[in-house]
Simulated assay, not measured.
Amino acid sequence: MSERMVRQFMEMVRIDSESGDEARFLEYLLGEVKALGGAAALDPYGNLIASFPAKGCKGAAPVLLSCHGDTVKPGVGIEPVLDGGVVHSGGDTILGADDKAGIAEVLEALRVAPVRPPVEFAVSRQEEVGLFGVKALDFSRITARRGFLMDNDTLDTIVIGGPTYFAIDVKVIGRSAHAGMEPEKGINAIHAAAKAIAALRLGRIDHETTANVGVVSGGVIRNGVPAECSFLAECRSGDHAKAVALVEEMTRVIRTEVEGAGAAVEVAVDEKCRAVRIPEDAWAVRIAKQALAAIGIDAKAVFITGFTDASIYNNHGIEMAVVGIGAQDEHSTTEHVAVADMENAVLALVEMLRLAAA
């Protein structure tokens, strides 16, 4: 099992699929899914949706398995290395185990599971940059009402919820002038943006709420009063009302500080996903816990303030628990995955399918 799965995983990560550039990888995956006997197609947005018939059972409800096909940067030219039972990148790129390890594990489980209910398999685009793929998914092609998202790192946790997340894009407009000859004629957009950022409450607000400014850009030349400055901020909370109140506060502070500095400002707010939490005794959580316990892993249900495709599925009424794939140090050039963890993920998934077919 492991040799075949690892070989395919390493083949997959060699196919570039940074967010927005997943087409070649998803076309590859389409062929692999069809070769396993799945009825598969890409939806209008380019997400892959497949279905597999039941095996060794009759009358069981369908189960949805899902992953995402995109990776973060730097993800071009990945060259995986298998060393001492661990797969890692060459050191100048990510590995792409997030989420191609999950995809490889799903494919292997579909190959080897002796019993399974009808299975639907969805692989989304552009998860890493805002869940765009799953938001545009053709849900008319999904009949399952419960399932598992293979996109958690550790095998001993099961994610049962995620936050409301707001992206805040800010453009500050000042007025250019020569910084040495006539600075009084200018309005420094960077200074106005800095005042706004300094006035924001950032970092951990409470146990389930955070805010951040992650990107600032502006100015053209050293000796010019900058006419424009942009910054990208965010806030998130496990409590939707808290997130709404915080984004309103941040927007108000930004406008007040920028306009107080004499500049104009444009603020665009985008709700990327809404807080959702499934019960710890939900069917998907119970099945995942039982399956992991069968291979000796005592998994705990956790709520995270990161977001995954499961938030969108759950808000669409499809009960999804997020289970582990074994990836470590995701989104970094030290990303890696142990073959033993991938094997355990497959064993757990095979058991989940058996329990779901019962």
Rank of each mutant, 00 (worst) to 15 (best):
T251P: 03
A293P: 03
A241H: 13
V81I: 13
G214M: 09
V346S: 04
L149S: 14
A282G: 00
V119P: 07
D151L: 03
P62V: 06
L64D: 03
R14E: 14
L149E: 13
G186N: 06
E182I: 14
P44H: 09
F132D: 07
I325G: 11
Q328C: 05
I221T: 15
D83I: 08
T164E: 10
K242C: 11
M5F: 02
I297T: 03
I197H: 03
V129F: 02
P279D: 14
E79G: 06
T209V: 13
R277A: 08
E79M: 11
P279G: 07
A340E: 13
R236D: 12
M352V: 07
E330C: 15
R255C: 02
L107H: 01
Y165E: 08
K100V: 09
I142R: 00
H336P: 01
I295K: 02
R277M: 09
Y28E: 04
H207K: 14
T71E: 08
F307M: 14
L131Y: 10
G218S: 03
P53A: 12
P80G: 01
P62L: 12
M181D: 14
V216M: 11
K58C: 07
D16M: 08
L26Q: 12
R145Y: 09
E3R: 12
Q328G: 00
D83M: 12
C235H: 06
F307E: 06
D298Y: 01
G260Y: 05
S140H: 05
H68R: 04
V350M: 05
S66L: 07
K100I: 10
I221Q: 15
L36M: 05
D341K: 13
E257T: 00
V112I: 14
G224T: 12
L200V: 12
P62Q: 08
S217L: 00
G326V: 05
R175W: 00
A233M: 11
G306D: 01
C67S: 14
N314R: 11
K100E: 09
T157M: 10
D309R: 03
I295H: 02
D206E: 11
A113I: 04
